[in-house]
Structures are given as structure tokens and as C-alpha cells.
Amino acid sequence: MNPGPKVIFHLFGQELLPVTDTLIVGWASVIIILILAKFLTVSLKLRPEGRQNIAEFMVELIYDQIEPMLPGEGWDFLPFIATIFIFIGVGNLVGLIPGVTSPTGDLNTTLGLALVVFLVSQYHGMKEFGIGGYLKGFAEPVIFLLPINIIGELAKPISHSFRLFGNVVGGGIIMTLIYQAAPALIPVPLHAWFGFFVGLIQALIFGMVAIAYISVAKS
């Protein structure tokens, strides 16, 4: 049993450019999301009907999560946060398909996204207070706390990425064990739990934590 990502082939035959199954599923997720987005917004009307309602509902649902944490900037941060949520949500859900590995079950994906969130939050913090002002914030309330604050800040992307990665991989390992131990059909509700429910919850948490990090950096 090896639950980690498997290297399918090497790009241009280079040993340094491995293409894993999680990366291929990641590309497939991007294409699925784009097809769905195009399908839902194929004919936008002033009076919404059918699929337009679904698209508007989703966008407004995510907007309603951002706006209270970053007042007045909901629409500015919506593309970033919503893309995180949708990419991770779909990435988790495709893991429901037997034989498909979630791209979020690969630390490369979660760490990559967590680092992007980290850099975005640092950027907004510096934009809000100036580079000096923002860095000075780490030495507050007393200079003594500077190392702890820096470690705390650097721990953010690690905890952020490992939380999602651990949940998805952990769920996958548990499912693999149960499938081996229990007869067919019994693991199905559990699979739905880990795949569907935990997948969506983790996507939501990842997005909310991203909002929180940006919000904290700005205040």
C-alpha cells in the first residue's frame, strides 16, 4: 500500500520534471471546473433562470463568507478565495471516483496553495501598513515576542497545507483499510462521508482560513 502520488511519466524525459497522477487529476479538475463555469454562465440574463441561479448562488455564497471578514472588499477578494474553494472542493470530490487520487492528497498541491495564500496575506499586510510598519508589527506588543511571532507566521502555511493534506490522505488511508477489511457496500456510506462531506468541509475551512490570514495581516 502506497497512498502517495505516483509518478506516471517524466515531462520531456527529464528526471527533474515528474508528472504525478495527482497533477494529471489536477489538470482534469481545472478543465472540469472551466467547462462547468462556462456551462453555468452560457447565457446570463437580468432575470436569472435555471443554471444562472446556481452560478449566482455559489458566487454569492462565497461572497457572503468574505464580506464580514474583509468589509467592503468582498468583491476584490472573491476571485482569489472562490478559486481556492472551487479548486479544492472539486479536487476533493473527484477523489470520490474510484481509482482517482485527489490532487489535494498530494502535499505539493496543498503547500503550493498555502504558500500562495501566505504570500498574498504578507503582500496585503505590507500594502496596508507599509513594509516597515508591517514588519514592526511582529515585534509587538514587546520585542521579546519577535521570534515567536515570526515562527507563528511561518507556521501558518505549514498548518494550513498539512491540515487539508492530512485530512484527505487520512481519509484515503482509512478507506483503503476498510475496503480491504470489510466486504463490498459496507464502506460506501463511509466513503461518502470522507469523500463528500469531509471534502467539502475541508475546502470551506481552507478558504475560510485563507480569508482569516489575509484579514489578520490587514489588521
Binding site: N2, P3, G4, P5, L16, L17, P18, V19, T20, T22, L23, G26, W27, V30, I33, L34, A37, P79, F80, A82, T83, I84, I86, F87, P103, D106, L107, N108, T109, L111, G112, L113, L115, V116, V169
Partner: peptide, 23 residues
């Protein structure tokens, strides 16, 4: 199981392409 490689960069590129196109 935990192996940091170029997939990280690829996934970040995926994310930004998705961000641009969804926007």
C-alpha cells in the same frame, strides 16, 4: 508519501490559470 517536487509549481500554475479564467 511526502515528496516535494515540481508538482507544487505546476499546481500553483494551475491555480493561477484557473483564477484568471474563472475571473
Amino acid at each position: 508519501m511526502v515528496n516535494i517536487n515540481t508538482t507544487l509549481i505546476w499546481e500553483v500554475i494551475n491555480f493561477f490559470i484557473l483564477l484568471y479564467l474563472l475571473k
